[in-house]
Design a protein around this nucleic acid. Sequence first.
DNA 1: TTCTAAACCGACCGCCCTGGTAGGATTTAG
DNA 2: CTAAATCCTACCAGGGCGGTCGGTTTAGAA
Lengths: 162, 162
Amino acid sequence: MIFSSKAEYGVRLMIELGRQQPEHPTSLKAIADAEGLPLAYLEQVVARLRRAGLVMSARGAHGGYWLSRPAEEITMDEVVQALEGAIAPMECFVHDHTERVLCSHMPDAGRGCATKLLWTRVQGGIIRSLQNTTLAELVEFSGRSEIQPLPAEAIGAGAPAS
Amino acid sequence: MIFSSKAEYGVRLMIELGRQQPEHPTSLKAIADAEGLPLAYLEQVVARLRRAGLVMSARGAHGGYWLSRPAEEITMDEVVQALEGAIAPMECFVHDHTERVLCSHMPDAGRGCATKLLWTRVQGGIIRSLQNTTLAELVEFSGRSEIQPLPAEAIGAGAPAS
DNA sequence: TTCTAAACCGACCGCCCTGGTAGGATTTAG
DNA sequence: CTAAATCCTACCAGGGCGGTCGGTTTAGAA
């Protein structure tokens, strides 16, 4: 599996916040109830989003969270990155000091590392897909579609915007 | 992390086989030594490639493995799929019968599942990157590059072949 | 015929990460 | 003051991952 539940929960949370008007704080409890997610766990998830500066919060009664920017200006690669950490297809992409055998992508002499070329392309494909999707788009998508199962043309992103 | 070490090891193994002339069996031991990988573990890895029909094998003395097709006709999405199983960005993409809360992508009434749209795009980005890379390309890349660190133009794939 | 190199197979195992819980401390509106 | 909320840290069970081990079968060579 590529992404953990943190990404799933966090993205849903962001969409939920995107539905509200900005500056109006929404409590985690409300979101947890709406989405059927464990509140205590959501706290950890939203903490990452806050530390990344994607949401802001107010403490105390009637406190809550809201988007720190309009949804149109938030790309999903920021969100996923905040939730999952660096988007890396392979261990060695994030830990250079790879003590284990797993990866030998070191810049040694001899032949170039062909697998690194492959993983770099994959990474590019993922990041491009995420960058080409804004939070606003997901909010809008979740809003309509009462009848439509999944409008096929909407799935076509990920390719360069061209 | 997106891919496990099975993918890394398996791809390296395939590249190594791609260097040899076809039908000439190469022993796992030779590959394990060349790449510095644990032999016993490689057995499990290569078993997946064999079951997927990507490599063939001969038992007994002087036995070994070879590519069942020319490297030009093997795309990396076949290889990675054989090694890692289905390429799914999120749990629910592979286990429909999701008993846990994690995913509620079920075709219920009400609003469409916006996260599924996002994950579908990501999945597309990954698969396209893998499909656009052939094993032959990696073999060739690992062959040259005595001096070149990483020719920048070579990383540009992942976009539709257009 | 026996030895040896190899593919094959299945069980096992420690580690770490993931998903989640628990319990509290702090802030603020009413 | 109290209730509602954010915030913080520690803890825990389960499962997957990376890897090992021992053994069986096959086939070439001496």
